[in-house]
């Protein structure tokens, strides 16, 4: 699992120091610190952050809102962000609110509030409500990554690295080239959110990444996967065969 990349846009040194220290202490990867609009845009383009933390007031002007507007204007390259502010000025907030999705953090804040705001930003942005806060689930699924809550912090896994998923009750075992781990998510939800052209049900308990299939042995009802992994194939889920043949 990889660390989450965070881009911080904050012009007060003492505050950005504390914020970065607290993020890094909890295994977030701070990819950059911008102190004005221009740096924020160029760092955003060059660093590929997963989430941004943006102070609304930069050098006395509400330029943070312009940053948010600029990064969310194109839906293909937009990223979730958290607004940071020490003012609860109503008009500023009303303007910021138009730049949706909206997650904010009022200074002074503690670590719990910081992580909560980041989690809320991810949930709202990817439109998967009530994931990190409920006891039943801990994973937000996007086209490129799984965002997983581990303890206090968040981690991510590249979707295309997944070889297969094995379901056990309420848990899913995720198997990648490098590691194996458990996430809490229901089978219904995970099969709805994963790309149906890439992931196929092959069995009551198995979901397989079609690009990792090496061979299908029909006589044994077995699928051989890269890295020496195996998955069962049952009669009810045979759609994958058509797909593998056409490859």
């Amino acid at each position: 699992m990889d660390k989450i990349n965070v881009l911080v846009v904050e012009d007060t040194v003492s505050e950005s120091d504390a914020l970065i220290a607290s993020l890094e202490a909890n295994n977030f990867n701070v990819v950059g610190l911008a102190t004005n609009f221009k740096d924020a845009i160029s760092l955003y383009n060059s660093t590929n952050p997963d989430v941004l933390i943006v102070d609304i007031f930069l050098n006395g002007l509400p330029e943070g809102i312009n940053v948010a507007e600029a990064i969310s204007v194109n839906p293909d390259s937009a990223k979730p962000f958290v607004f940071l502010t020490s003012s609860s000025d109503r008009q500023i907030f009303e303007r910021a609110k138009l730049t949706r999705p909206f997650s904010y953090l009022l200074k002074p804040f503690n670590e719990l509030e910081l992580f909560y705001a980041i989690e809320m930003a991810l949930e709202k942005f990817y439109e998967q409500k009530d994931v990190f806060l409920s006891d039943d689930e801990d994973t937000v699924i996007t086209d490129d990554y799984l965002f997983i809550k581990k303890g206090k912090a968040l981690k991510k896994v590249l979707v295309k690295d997944i070889i297969y998923i094995e379901v056990e009750d309420k848990y899913c075992n995720i198997i990648t080239e490098k590691e194996k781990f458990v996430i809490n998510i229901s089978l219904v939800k995970i099969s709805k959110l994963l790309n149906p052209d890439q992931f196929f049900r092959t069995h009551r308990r198995f979901i397989v990444n079609v690009s990792k299939v090496e061979e299908i042995i029909l006589s044994d009802n077995l699928i051989l996967l890269s890295g020496g992994h195996k998955a069962d194939l049952s009669d009810n889920y045979r759609e994958i065969i058509k797909r593998v043949k056409t490859l």
Binding site: S88, R90, E111, L112, E113, Y116
Partner: peptide, 23 residues
């Protein structure tokens, strides 16, 4: 002076209590 941003939303009570108590 009605200067504050005030917006009623859905929240989990447990989280809010945790956030306050942390300090």
């Amino acid at each position: 002076t009605k200067q504050t941003y005030f917006h009623i939303e859905e929240h989990r009570l447990y989280m809010l209590v945790e956030h306050v108590v942390f300090n």
